[in-house]
Nucleic acid binder design. Structure first.
Length: 221
DNA sequence: TCGAAGATTGTCT
DNA sequence: GACAATCTTCGAG
């Protein structure tokens, strides 16, 4: 059932559990971002199931966070950020790439976790087709736009439930604090030095970290 | 109605 | 490393 023949070594001995409940998301955004590492994103779509372990996230923590879309307040675009914890916030960036966020905090309190990179588990062939790739390399899913393309996520998933929809997040591997690295977020200008990006140490599927970025282990915070 | 900005990526040098 | 692609959103006038 689980197609991990071409996956990375870690994925070949990996099994995942139940869907994360809404209560998982209705907490502090930074904590959710850290704890999403090791969980499994699954999409059952018409061309097949694809799944992957989340290995990189960023927290966008509310209206006081200049880099968070909610800094603009409640608008048509940002409404999902104020919605139910455990729902998806999907938006188009630069007119080209979709980005998937998991909405956090109780209803009415904006916050979200951007999913930046996955380690593929199931549906490798489906993901390769979607990305127009010939073989499995980290380039398949090591960025938020690439992740969405490989997982067939676009505006149709905006505001849908990650608890009961076709796109879901399951419990997976729990990484020790010592295995988690924290750096500033990538590609933003406002609040650019806030340490709210989390990724799995020494994992090949994580996107690149700029050389000048300070990096600390989560266990050292 | 118009203009500018943007949580990125792929290609070219 | 630089740069173009592409389009939605929102604020200003």
């Amino acid at each position: 059932m689980t197609d991990t023949r071409n996956a990375a070594p870690f994925a070949r001995r990996f099994a995942f559990g139940r869907v994360l409940p809404a209560s998982f998301y209705a907490r502090d955004t930074a904590l959710v971002a850290r704890e999403l590492l090791g969980t499994v994103l699954v999409n059952d779509s018409s061309d097949g199931r694809a799944s992957g372990m989340i290995v990189e996230t960023e927290a966008y923590v509310g209206e006081h966070d200049g880099a968070c879309h909610a800094a603009a307040g409640l608008t048509n675009r940002t409404a999902p950020l104020y919605g139910a914890p455990g729902s998806a916030y999907v938006y188009l960036i630069y007119g080209l790439h979709w980005c998937l966020n998991a909405v956090t905090q109780p209803v009415g309190v904006p916050g979200a976790v951007l999913l930046r990179a996955l380690e593929p588990l199931e549906g490798i062939d489906v993901m390769l087709n979607r990305r127009g790739a010939a073989r499995l390399t980290p380039n398949l899913t090591n960025g938020p736009g690439k992740l969405c393309a490989a997982m067939a996520i676009d505006r149709n998933q905006n505001s849908t439930s990650l608890v009961s929809g076709s796109v879901r997040i399951h419990r997976g591997h729990v990484f020790d604090d010592d295995q988690v690295v924290v750096t500033p977020r990538i590609g933003i200008r406002k609040a650019a030095d806030w340490p709210l990006r989390y990724f799995v140490r020494d994992n090949a599927w994580v996107s690149r970290t700029p050389a000048a970025f300070p990096a600390r282990r989560y266990s050292e915070l």
